[in-house]
Structure formats: C-alpha cells, structure tokens
Design a protein around this nucleic acid. Structure first.
Lengths: 207, 207, 207, 207
DNA sequence: AATGAATGAGGTTTCATTCAT
DNA sequence: CATGAATGAAACCTCATTCAT
C-alpha cells in the first residue's frame, strides 16, 4: 500500500479527465486523417485541432504510432461491440453472409469518418516486415463461410476466394464513399450487395 | 540542338535523350513507391536509384507532384492503349462487362508494380479541392453499361450503381493483391469475377 | 508541524521523512548518472527509479541543477567527514601526501559510483561564468604541501605545481577507472602512487 | 564514363568548396564544445557560429554523431602526422617516454581547444555497449614501454600500470588546463613531468 | 543539361518546469 | 506532501526546392 504509487507516464488507472482527453485526441486524429490524409497528418495538427499543445499529445501517446494505433484499436473495439451483438438468420450460410454485410455496413454508416481514418492508416502504416502477401484475414473468414455453404450444397460453386474478396472490397468501397459523401447510403448498399451475393450463390435451377 | 541559347526549363520539343531519362525516372519512382510506400518516397531516393543527382529529377519534374502525376498519367496512357484495343463480344452487355474485367485484370497482371504505385499515389495525393464526394468516373462507366443492359432486358434488375462499385472494388483489390503477392492470379480472378457478375445479372427465371 | 498553514516550498525544518526521501532521490540520481551518463539523466528517469512521481523530485529539488548540485555536495560532505579524520604521519610532508593519497583513494574505493556520478556532473555542468581558468583548488592545496616540504629541504626540487596536478589527475583517473571497472584496485593504486611520489620527491643524493 | 556521376549525398570526391566548409564546421563545433560543453553543443549552435543554416550542417554531416566523430577523427589525423614525425632518443626507454610526453604536450600546446573538444566528446559519447572497463589503450602503450625498460634493468621497479595511468592523466590534465587557460604552459608541464617520471624510474643507487 | 551546395520549413520527440487538485 | 496533467522550448533530422556553376 505504501509503495503503490509509481509511474511517471500516464497512469494505468487513468483519471476520468485523462481518459476523456485521450478520446478527444483520437477523435481529432480521425478528423485530420479524413481531411488531410495519412501523409498530411501530423501530431502538431492534431494538437491544434484539440486546442492543446503538442506536448499534450505526446504525453498521452508517446509516439505518433501510438496515437494512430489507438485510432485503429478503438474502432475495432467499437466494431466488436456493435457487430458482435448483431445476429441474423444463422441457420443458413447465405443468411449469415447477409447479416455480415448488413452489420458491417450499418457500422460504417454509423461511423463513416472513423472507418475512413482507419483505412487511411491501414493503407500507409505498413508492417515492419515489408509488404505482406497472402490473404486478408477478414476475407478469409468470409471465404470459409462460403465454402461451408458450398459443402452443404446450399451455395453454388462460384470461387469462394474471389467472392469473399469482392464482398470485402465492396464493403470497403462503400465505407470510403460514405466517409467523404454524406449523401451516400451505406445501408442501401448493404441491401443491394446482399442481393448480388445471393444471386451469385443461388444454386442453379436443376432444370 | 536547334538553337544554342540557355533554357531554364525542359525543352518544349524534348530530345529523345531527355524522354528516355524521364521514363527512367518514372520507373524508379514506381519502384520506390512500391517498396517504400508513399511516405517513404522522396526525390532523393528516386534520384539515388536512377543513379543521377537530385537536381536531375527536379530539372525534369520541377515539383515532386509533377513526378508522381506522371507516374499516374503514364499508367493511364499505357492502360488506355492496351485496354482500348481489347474487344470482345460487344454485342451483349454482359460480354462487354466480361471484356472490361478481363482487359483490366490482364493489364494489372502485366504491370503489377506500376499499378501498385499508382494506388499508393492515389491513396495519398488528394486533389487540392478537398475530398471529393460523388461517383468515381470508372464506376460510372460501368454503371451506364449495366443500365443499358437492363434497359434491353438482357440484364436483371440489380442495383447498377452498387454492382458497378463492387466490380471496380473487386478489380482494384485484385490489383493490390497482385502487386504484393507474385503468386496471386489476376487472370483467374477475372474469370471468377466474370462468373459472379454474370450470375448476378442473369435474368431470374429464363425457364 | 509547528504551524499548519500551507507552504509551497520544502520546509525549512525538514521532517525526517523528507530528509530520507531526499537522500533516496540523490541515490537514484547517482545511479542514473553512472548508468546513463549526464546526457541521459532526466528528472523523469530519476523519479521512475525512486518509484515516485516526477512532481516529487521537483518538489524537493525545484530545479534539475539543484538535484545534481546535491549529488556533488553530498559526496563532498561524506568525503570531508571520512577524509578529515584520516591522519597519518603528519610530521613529514611526504607522510602527509601519502595520507592524502590513501585517504582519497580509500574513499573512492568505498564510493565508486557516487564518485563517478560526480565526475559526470562536474564534466558537464559548468559554472555560469564561463570556463574558469586558473588552478584547481584541490591541486593548490597539494602544491602548498609540497612547497612546504621543499622549504624544509625534506622534498627535492621538482615543480610543485606539476606534481600536484599529476597527483590529482592520477587519483581522479583511478577513481574513474574504479567506478567503471569493479576489478580495479584503487587501494593498490594508492600504494603505487605513493611510491612514485616518494621517489619523485626523494632528495637526490642523500649519500 | 557515362555513368560515373552518381550520388546525392556529399560527393566522395568533394569540391574544394565543400571541403573547406566541412573543415569550417568542424572548427565551429570545436569552439562550441569548448565553450558550451558537450551537453550545450547543438547542431543549431554550430550552424549559427558558422554563419550558415542548420541544413548545411546536416547536409555535410547527416548526423550529429557524424560531426562529433569528425571532430575526434580530424584531431587524431593531425596528431598522427605531427607526433609521428617526432623522434627523440629512442635508444633508451626513458628517452622514449620523454619524447612521448614532449610530443604529446607540444601537440596539446599547439591545439589546446581542439584537444579539449575531443575530451569533451570522449567523456560523453559513450560506446553503445555500456561503459567499458579495462585499460585505456593509450595507457597500455605506455605501460608496455615502461615494462620493457624494467626488463632491461634500465628502469626501476615501480608499478608500470599505475605510472602509465598517471602519465596519461597528467598529460590530459595539462591539456584540459591549456584549453581553458591561455597562460598555461603545456611545454613547461612536459619538462617537469619528464623530470618526475625520470626520478620515479631512476634505478636506485646500488649503494 | 546536369551537379553539388544550400536553404528553411516542418516533423517527431524529449524534457524541465509549472500547476490544479 | 504528492500526483498527474499540461506546457512550450529546443533538439535532431528529413526533405522539397532553389541556385550558381
């Protein structure tokens, strides 16, 4: 008890004040990313928009990377909460795909700027070990879902990998659009995309 | 050579030598963009790879933006030439869409690095007049094509705008993949995407 | 404790608690100076090692310079106490010199880290009034001792100033060595240095 | 011949202009080191004294460490040239020691500021692998010289390591003094130190 | 046409210090 | 007494750009 007060960096059990400011800084970083792009995003600009000194930013986020990582992480956190509780017809694979698309694009419609900011970061903050090939994990999940449907005969035999990539790409494109264009209708996009996917996977009528 | 007085800007009737060097510089810029990303791309690095002094670069491209614009423009030029002469079944809309997909992804398969470089630039070098909303012109062209097919009854009544966006997004995603992952099969992607689009546009009950 | 109104500077009649903490902070500063060097010594690092917040340090030592000065002063205080009570053959000058060397290097052998820390500070924290020329006071004291011996004929006629500087330099070098290298033998150095000095001061032909 | 003009960093075959400026920058760095100390030495201050912009310094010395290293290296280069051609009585070990002392302190007397600057750098720019214990190589050379004399019986049996350290320390102390105090007499110091060393090594009269 | 040199703005980060609680 | 938060100056470094040769 006597020696429980260490630390010279932000406390692990942060004061509400500090917590609120951190969130505010992340918000400002999102704005800057969306409006000025990754290359145009500087710690100084974030501080300026938050109305604090540059030092405040580096106090809470010792490194620029820390700040941007938090932009990404906080979105994932929110997405996890919101999407996690979205459940649809999980009895059919096509139903699951529809739920996936809808919950994704609903989330996008609710947080267009944050989503765009994360895309900006993801596109530019490359992992240390060079550009990674391989399949995107989000697509991979979709692909497995599709393949499951194909195994049961519920879904037609189109290439699962390509369809998965296409779905993800379509969702991301709608997200990008929604972030820049307030008139864009992400939820409408979802419905139409569901239709497209459904038609693509429709078992061909055994004449 | 025609006249001997000093010029301080690149000749309006450029010498073949100068042209070749410009092309070389663009090539090197592509390499740097692919390997180091937009943020890592500096004039100095391009010059180093080209084996020339930094001054040479700024002589031919007064501004960094000029150089990067040329990276983009030259790809469009090449793409226009190669894709322009690709003709398929232009009697059916679905045939035209297939040709579009195939020629696009064939081009991507042939120039993966250049394509990746342009994506890098496009993602980061935003137009001066803020983020533009509205429909991407490439998607718009596809949408019109689809709508034409729907008008004739050849294509089913899925949302043309969403399908167009989805097609473009799928093509771009495959391009991004191909640029990073030499084992990726852009042409295979094209065929599978054609299938997906065909199924999506198939009139529902031809019975 | 005598009065209960707020104070904003450390109490003039410091509590034992405060005293102990100040000593602890000085100790930590010594550690940091030794391990990270002057340039690497920050208030934050000292606080971290002491397990207190940065504010505690600046509370007890309003200025970084105050802290480092205390590092120096406290060593001098300890040295004064320990060396002051060291007495040897004070009947002969050479005996006094030997005692000086031995007590100095004994002290060094007992406090190698603190000594190193002070050297780090002394080398970098220069007096406000520019670099001081002139004779180092410690050397001056030695010089006077030697000159006294020369006046009585006990010591040979070598240059007292140079010998004094040389002795001090040798002691400091041994101190520096001892601080970095735990295998160094400061006390052995003392004996050998005594021998060297004795030979240097030996009347030439006692015959 | 056509492709012999690479490089975007200072040319390996530098123009006389660049060479002169580099030397000037090193000179200014020496001044700053002497007057402001290691901790007070900033690239900006060096640039200010040289009357050039900060960028010029980092153009010629990409890193602060590069600049300081050059301060050290250039002194060693000059010292090597000047001391290398100093030859004295190399028939006796004591003669060699005297020559060593004299040539060292002559050099010091000729370049007091540069020497002081290098000491400043050496004291603070610690090698990456922590503080190194062990014997200083310069002392080691002296020790071997002394031991050689002892092997032949020319030199008395005082501890060679301690005497070597003491000689080096005395030389360095005189150098430090000379850099700050223009009235200091390094050459005089040399003569008196030679006397001290000679007496210390004098074979005791075999009665 | 081409080069090396120079510039200065701007970026990230560190840090001593101050202050409200 | 003690703390976490905030500040702003200054450090090093990168880089697009300009210019004399």
């Amino acid at each position: 008890m006597s020696d429980s007060h260490l630390r010279t960096t932000p406390s692990p059990t942060p004061s509400p004040r500090g917590l609120a400011l951190k969130a505010e800084l992340v918000d400002c970083a999102v704005d800057v990313l969306v409006e000025l792009g990754f290359a145009g995003t500087s710690v100084a600009e974030v501080a300026r928009r938050a109305g604090v000194s540059k030092g405040v930013v580096t106090y809470h986020f010792p490194t620029k990377e820390d700040l941007l990582s938090e932009v990404v992480t906080s979105l994932y956190r929110e997405a996890g909460e919101q999407i996690g509780q979205a459940t649809g017809d999980s009895d059919s694979v096509i139903g699951e795909l529809a739920t996936y698309i809808r919950s994704n694009l609903t989330f996008v419609a609710d947080h267009p700027r944050h989503v765009r900011a994360v895309m900006e970061v993801a596109a530019n903050m490359r992992p240390a070990n060079g550009p990674r090939g391989g399949e995107d994990p989000l697509s991979a999940h979709l692909r497995e879902l599709i393949e499951r449907g194909q195994a049961t005969g519920e879904a037609a035999d189109v290439d699962a990998g390509v369809l998965a990539m296409t779905m993800r790409a379509s969702i991301d494109a709608a997200a990008a659009r929604a972030a820049c264009d307030p008139t864009a209708d992400a939820r409408g996009h979802a419905e139409h995309l569901v239709t497209i996917v459904r038609r693509a996977l429709q078992a061909t009528e055994p004449r």
